[in-house]
Design a binder for these strands. Structure first.
Lengths: 178, 178
DNA sequence: AGAAATTATTTTAAGCCTAAAATGTTTTTG
DNA sequence: CAAAAACATTTTAGGCTTAAAATAATTTCT
């Protein structure tokens, strides 16, 4: 008699998914998470292009700058967006050319570049953000509100799990260096 | 740092998130989903590079080919991976150069290109896949098994919701063309 | 059969993205 | 104070990605 894993599954499947060291369930979970993420991202990209002739990276960057009145440094944006510094530099260059973002070095520390939305940038972003919010709501509309809450909660725990696993491994690597 | 989701929220926040036409909750849900997805993806990219000197797109492409004995067409791979045809063409070119993938036009229909893993490709992939499976399990290890099940189920519903919303909009566009 | 439509893939042009090296600036340290 | 270390950003080189146009092959229609 084998230990039943979660609930009523067929014998063959039970055996298959209980091989020692097997992690097919986690793999399926990740694939499904990725599928959802990709579907949303692709759809948003398409709509941003069709409706506003812009791209998701530009939108995301402007979204960060919209959250502050005083501006943000390149490093700060790069951290929040989880992309490289060089990437921010490049995307910002385009936005500056288009007059949507302003970039100037901080007076106290000339290493730092302060990024802000221009007046036009803020106006353009706000219009896009409103539509964007509707699109996202539309995409999740097939989910009950309680399920959305559940999902939000579970993704929170997932985030915690991920951060712990990733930080743990970084520590190991640091130990290895010593 | 994060706003509480469904239950006990402060009056001011309740008001703020109940403005007519407001969809901040869905937005937060999407952002959290994206964060999880990005964290996993980045970590897997890093480990594939460090441990196998390869990239995620290559790994993903080989994973598709590993699922079949008879090979797959460019279009089929592109559909499953949810990337453009041109992208598959480009990534395959690299894999062919490295002797991991074989590409030949189908004898009955010379438009079609049949892609298969070479013997070496299959061997290399299997080794990577085993490690990959462990990495994913490790990343989700902080989640209870019942929570993983819940999450899997909810993401299934999310997928359904997304497909419906996206298909619905495509129909509208088609109607507009007529 | 021959023209037109469809299908599968590739090419092209442009933008995104990263890691690693380089640059310029500030802080720390001997 | 000067050298070294740390820091913030940019540059570089290379790979990924897409949409749209181009190419090539097959199928459909008349």
């Amino acid at each position: 008699m084998e230990t039943p894993s979660s609930s009523l599954i067929l014998d063959r499947e039970t055996k298959a998914s209980e091989r020692p060291g097997d992690h097919k369930d986690e793999l399926r979970l990740w694939l499904r998470l990725l599928t959802c993420s990709t579907l949303i991202e692709t759809e948003i990209r398409n709509r941003l292009r069709e409706e506003f002739k812009t791209t998701l990276p530009r939108f995301d960057l402007m979204a960060q700058l919209d959250k502050t009145a005083v501006g943000m440094t390149v490093g700060e944006v790069s951290q929040r967006l989880m992309v490289s510094n060089g990437n921010v530099t490049a995307v910002v260059a385009g936005l500056v050319t288009d007059g949507l973002v302003d970039k100037r070095s901080a007076p106290q520390d000339r290493r730092v570049q302060i990024l802000t939305l221009t007046a036009q940038g803020r106006k353009v972003f706000r219009a896009m953000a409103e539509r964007h919010e509707d699109w996202i709501a539309e995409l999740f509309a097939g989910l009950e509100q309680t399920d959305r809450g559940q999902l939000f909660r579970l993704l929170g725990q997932t985030k915690t799990s991920l951060h712990r696993a990733i930080a743990g491994r970084a520590e190991d690597a640091a130990k290895g260096d010593a």
